[in-house]
Amino acid sequence: MNLTLKVWRQKNSQSEGYFETHQLTGISPDMSFLEMFDVLNEKLVEENKEPVAFDHDCREGICGMCSMYINGRPHGPLEGVTTCQLHMRSFSDGDTIVVEPWRATAFPVIKDLVVERSSFDRIIAAGGFVSVNTGNAQDANNIPIPKDDADDAFAAAACIGCGACVAACKNASAMLFVSAKVSQLALLPQGQAERTIRAEKMVAQMDEEGFGSCTNTGACSAECPKEISLENIARLNREYLGAKLSSKSV
């Protein structure tokens, strides 16, 4: 396949960015999108030019690192797929492909296509965990969990923290991510102890980081590689409002 690639280049977070155009020839349709970038970077290195910086790690759709905004959509044209799992066969010979970094004030660009997503880490650190006491673990079967709850919690736990929801949202809102992280714990017995304080703290941290507020457009869920449902956002709203109304912290 022959392709024209328009890639965002930016030296560091302070500098101005710009688009750089590259012609690629002989790309195999069986390559993944990231392998196509490897080919580009090898070519750039051979030409003594700076390779394009992009994030990646597992390349099997589970780590959430590969953040690329491809032709106007996070993770490209397929539904429920990360950039690393996207293959060149999803494009046609002769296509022009535009690749930009995630754009959000809370995700500043570090270099080229790499953005700083530690705002997500700080939200998790604010409450996205359960405290576990030392001692022997009790028998798991002693804690009955309704199947529906287990399924919903599992579906929410599929979130890989990639940030595509923020990238897709017109308001750069992090509600889908936060709602998945609150839901996976709120639905399970292990999450009950810190349930109210978790919702309060995670939302407060989310607001602090400068993400926008949700207007329920649904673009996040449509682009999420793990197809996290909007039901989680409704649950987060319930959890947060319920926590604010019932908790004793004034």
Binding site: N71, G72, A219
Partner: peptide, 20 residues
Amino acid sequence: NRKARNVKYNLIRNQSTWSS
């Protein structure tokens, strides 16, 4: 909400309704 995205995208294919 607009301030939450200080640099705009060049190309957007948003998967949501026009109304929203």
